[in-house]
Each structure stands twice: as structure tokens, then as C-alpha cells.
């Protein structure tokens, strides 16, 4: 079943236009805690970066700064030489620690809504759900989905968003082995299309050639 679904996820899709993320001299703090100082990063098409480190080392904060939610103290975050804050809205697909699902909502109605919001056709919903092997749950209210199933639904939204830069906060957290395989396949096909992936994770993720940055060490 896994292999069949994998072959389905690797449908030929158009490549993203080249995107480069560059971070220079980034200083980041929350309250009196300094999380990063003079941090530099560069990521090109097809590259992936894992942010690792113990709890409280600033993985989520760095991810939120990259998405433009937090203003860094110093330094600049650029997407193709444009300030990230300006380009973020049509470039970034965001998966936070929660999946934005309402208890009474089904994956179908939630993803229809997000398709409208992202300006994507609703026909893209089923393939996205199939890629995460939850197409059979499409009409089940989120309150009755397990945490792992909700996570898969969140990942389906990422696929649906069709954005070149994925920022994922603990994407594999509640996922089982099969779910992690789905995630790895999605990330691989996204990278093959020239997409970028940055994930904060406390568990090791086996993504080929993914660089990693230990937040505890900076």
C-alpha cells in the first residue's frame, strides 16, 4: 500500500521558479533570552534544512522569524533578494504546532476553505489527501480524527498551498512510521520540483542530503 501511494505522490508537477532564502547576521531574542546571534543561512532550490536542538533553544522562534511573524532584533531575511516579509505571503507554506482544524470541521470543508484562500483549484484537494493516505477520512469531523490524522490533514494543506518554501514545525511529531514515510516522500517530491524545506524537529528525520542546524550550539 505504501509503495502504491508513493508512486502516486510523485506525479510530475511543474517546477517552481528558482527561490533562494538568505539569512544574514540574524539576532533573535525572546524577552531576555538570546536565541541566536549573527546567524547566517543560505538555502537554494531543492535544499532542505533541519533545525534541531533541545526544547527552548529557539527552533520555533527561528521558524516564526523566517515566516515574518517575529521581527528579528538584527539582521535580514531575504527571499530572492527581497525582504522576506514582503514575499512571504505567496511564497511560504506554514505548518505550525497546531493544524488549524476546527473540531466540527471535516477535512473536506477545511481544505476547500484553504484552497479558496490560497487561490488553488478544489480539484487539488483529493490528490493532496491521497498523498497522505487520508482520503477515506475526508468527511470525518476533525474532533474524531487522531492527532496523527490531523497532522496529515495539516500536511495535505501544505501540499495544497502550492508554495515553494515549506516551513514545518515538528512535522513528524504525532506521525506513525507510515506517516513519516508519506512525509519523507512529499518532501522529496517537493525538493525535486525545486522547492525548499525547513523543518524544526526534535526527532531525527531521515531526509537525504538534508543539512541540519543545531540551535543549541549557536
Amino acid at each position: 500500500m505504501t509503495s502504491a501511494s508513493l508512486s502516486r505522490t510523485v506525479t510530475p508537477a511543474p517546477k517552481f521558479p528558482d527561490l533562494r532564502l538568505s539569512v544574514s547576521d540574524l539576532g533573535l531574542s525572546r524577552g531576555d533570552m538570546v536565541l541566536a546571534r549573527d546567524l547566517g543561512l543560505a538555502l537554494g532550490p531543492g535544499e532542505a534544512l533541519l533545525l534541531t536542538g533541545r526544547n527552548g533553544t529557539g527552533k520555533t522562534s527561528l521558524l516564526r522569524a523566517l515566516a515574518g511573524f517575529i521581527e528579528p532584533d538584527t539582521g535580514a531575511i531575504r527571499l530572492n533578494d527581497e525582504p522576506a516579509a514582503l514575499a512571504a505571503a505567496d511564497t511560504i507554506a506554514w505548518l505550525g504546532h497546531a493544524d488549524g482544524l476546527k473540531p466540527g470541521e471535516t477535512p473536506r470543508s477545511a481544505l476547500r476553505f484553504w484552497a479558496d484562500l490560497y487561490g488553488q483549484p478544489r480539484t487539488a484537494i483529493m490528490p493532496a489527501l491521497r498523498a497522505l493516505e487520508i482520503d477515506h477520512l475526508i468527511d470525518r469531523p476533525a474532533a474524531r480524527l487522531s492527532r496523527g490524522q490531523q497532522r496529515r490533514c495539516g500536511l495535505a494543506r501544505i501540499v495544497l498551498a502550492h508554495r515553494p518554501l515549506w516551513l514545518l514545525d515538528e512535522p513528524a511529531g504525532p506521525l506513525d512510521a507510515e506517516g513519516r514515510a508519506c512525509l519523507a516522500a512529499l518532501v522529496a517530491s517537493h525538493r525535486a520540483r525545486g522547492g525548499l524545506v525547513i523543518a524544526a524537529t526534535h526527532q531525527p528525520l531521515d531526509w537525504p542530503d538534508a543539512r541540519s542546524l543545531d540551535m543549541g550550539a549557536i
Binding site: A67, G96, A98, G100, L117
Partner: peptide, 16 residues
């Protein structure tokens, strides 16, 4: 609700 379930984060990342 939208604050705690992350929906507001997602609203920030739309072109509208």
C-alpha cells in the same frame, strides 16, 4: 480559538 489552533498564523501568510 483561531489564535490557539494556529489559524491566525495561516491568515498572515495569504496574499489578501
Amino acid at each position: 480559538d483561531d489564535f490557539s489552533d494556529g489559524t491566525l498564523d495561516l491568515y498572515l501568510l495569504t496574499p489578501t
